[in-house]
Structures are given as C-alpha cells and as structure tokens.
Amino acid sequence: MSTTGIAAPVRAQNRRVLVAALVATVVMLFTAFAAAYLEHQGAARAANKWSPVALPGVVWINTAILAFSSVLAEVFRQSRRRGLLWGAMGLGLVFLGGQVFAWLELRRSGVYLPTNSYASFFYILTIVHAAHIALALVALATAARRPRIASLCVGFWHFLGVVWIYVLFILKGL
C-alpha cells in the first residue's frame, strides 16, 4: 500500500500540530535556561562575582548571516525556487562555522567553559542552539524534495532565528 492512507488534509494538520508542539518544547527548554541564567546572575551579583565576558565580534556577523538565511528561506517558501533553499542552508552552515569560530575565539582569549558562570551559560546556550540549528538543517534538506513540508520547515527555521535573538537577548540584555 502506498502512502495515501491518511487523508492529505489530516496529514497537513498532523504536521502543523507536531511542529507547534516541538516549538513549545524548545520554548520551554530555552525558558528554563533563561530562568537559570537569571537565578545565577542574581546570586553572583549579590556576591559581586558577576563578570560578563565580551562576546566575540563574529557573533554579530553570525546573526546577520542567520537573518539573511531566513530571508532566503522565506523567498524560497513563496517562490519555491530550490536554489534559494540551498542558499539558505549554505548560510546556515556558515552560521554554524561562525559559531565554532566564536568558541575558538573565546578560547584563545582564555575564556573556557568553566571560567565563570557567564562563560558557562554562553557556551551551553550557544551549543544547545547550534544543535537545534544542525537538526533543522537536516529538516530543511528534506524540504527540498517534499514541497508539502517546506512551509513548516521554513517556519521552524525562522523560529530558530528568533530563538537565536532570544539567546543574544539573554546574554547581552538581561
């Protein structure tokens, strides 16, 4: 039997629920990290031990790359030109490379994972986010061949972009 068992509209609805639920779990995950960050910051500030590290400049370039990737993905979603998707994914890979560069940069300046709690949070947040980006790249790759899930994959890609802004907000804004 072929894959025609579940009616197409039901399938589409299934995928929407699945992605919505995934988004909710990711939101809860990063909310937990944000709460942990605030708790640590409060305790460390009270003890005069809070010492944020200057983020490497490449982080901002990465942000721009991720934003541009989102734009390409969005144009792909509307025009369905596959080349744009490859572009978006390429930029996603560049973003990951840029993140690795940022970690190396921090390491060169003597900031390691255990250096202080700000550094620990920087690493853990960016690593967890990068893991999500890597998985989303796999999802985008499948979207090229399956137009029906393209919209959702692109939507999830945008969402991870927003999560990245949120991560930056935690690290710089809070």
């Binding site: 995950l29 990290f33 853990i124």
Partner: peptide, 14 residues
C-alpha cells in the same frame, strides 16, 4: 509532559 520535560533536560545537561 511536553511542557514540563524540557526544563529537566536543561537541568540534566547542566
């Protein structure tokens, strides 16, 4: 479960 498990994941990772 979907809403409550991610914070435990975060805690386990930390």
């Amino acid at each position: 479960a979907l809403l409550a498990f991610p914070p435990l994941t975060a805690a386990a990772l930390m």
